[in-house]
C-alpha cells in the first residue's frame, strides 16, 4: 500500500538526485501539483489529454534538470514547475500555430510567481526529437542500455535479467547498441549539436 509521502523541496531534490524514494517522490509531485498545473492548460484552450501530456513532459524535464544539477533550488519547486508548465504549454500552442496563442493574453493564476525558464524550454524540441530517435532502437538494445545506464545494473545483474550467454556478450552488445544509437543521432547533425549544448553546455 502506497503511503502519501510528503517531502520538503530539499528532500524532494535529494531524492531525485540520488534516485532513492523516486517513485514516492514523483507521486508526491503529482498529488501536490497536477491539479494546479493541469488546470492552467485546460483553462487555456487545452484538453485533459493535453494537460496530462504537458505535465508528464514537465516532470521528465524537472527530474532531468535536477539530476544534471541544472536546477539547484533557486526558486521553489512549485514556482519552477508552474513556470515550466505554463511556458511548455505556450510553446506547444505556438508549435501548433494555434490562433489562441496570438489572440489571447494568458493569465497567471492569481498569486503565482514565475521564474525565467526560457532556456530550458528552448531545449524542448531537441529532447523530444532525441527521445523519438531512441524509441526507434530495437527492444533488445533499449533494454540493455536502460538496465545499464538508467537502472545502474552491473553486467552480472543484466546477465540475470536477459538471455545472453555471458558477461562479455552483454558488454559487446551494450557497446554495439550505444554506437548504433550514437550513429542514429549523428545522422541529424543539427540535433547532435543541440544535444551537445544541452548535455555538455
Amino acid at each position: 500500500m502506497d503511503t502519501n509521502s510528503s517531502y520538503s523541496d530539499n528532500e524532494l531534490i535529494t531524492n531525485i538526485k540520488t534516485g532513492r524514494l523516486m517513485d514516492e517522490s514523483i507521486k508526491m509531485v503529482y498529488r501536490q501539483y497536477f491539479g494546479l498545473l493541469s488546470s492552467y492548460v485546460i483553462n487555456n484552450s487545452g484538453s485533459q489529454q493535453d494537460a496530462e501530456d504537458i505535465f508528464q513532459e514537465v516532470i521528465v524535464s524537472f527530474i532531468d534538470l535536477v539530476q544534471r544539477a541544472k536546477f539547484r533550488g533557486e526558486s521553489s519547486v512549485k514556482t519552477f514547475l508552474y513556470s515550466m508548465n505554463r511556458n511548455t504549454w505556450l510553446n506547444e500552442l505556438k508549435r501548433r500555430g494555434r490562433s489562441e496563442f496570438r489572440e489571447r493574453k494568458f493569465e497567471l493564476v492569481r498569486g503565482d510567481e514565475e521564474v525565467d525558464v526560457s532556456h530550458f524550454i528552448a531545449d524542448r524540441e531537441a529532447k523530444n526529437e532525441v527521445l523519438s530517435v531512441v524509441a526507434r532502437l530495437g527492444e533488445a538494445c533499449k533494454k540493455i542500455l536502460l538496465l545499464f545506464y538508467y537502472e545502474n545494473m552491473g553486467m552480472k545483474e543484466i546477465l540475470e535479467n536477459t538471455d545472453y550467454e555471458n558477461e562479455q556478450v552483454v558488454r559487446n552488445k551494450k557497446y554495439k547498441c550505444l554506437k548504433q544509437l550514437e550513429h542514429m543521432i549523428n545522422q541529424n547533425p543539427a540535433l547532435m549539436n543541440s544535444l551537445k549544448n544541452i548535455f555538455h553546455g
Partner: peptide, 20 residues
Amino acid sequence: DHLRIARESVRLLGIKNKVG
C-alpha cells in the same frame, strides 16, 4: 562526446518511462 550524448539520451528515456 557523442557516446556521452547517446548515454544521456538513454537516461532521458529511462526517466520518461518511469514517469509514464
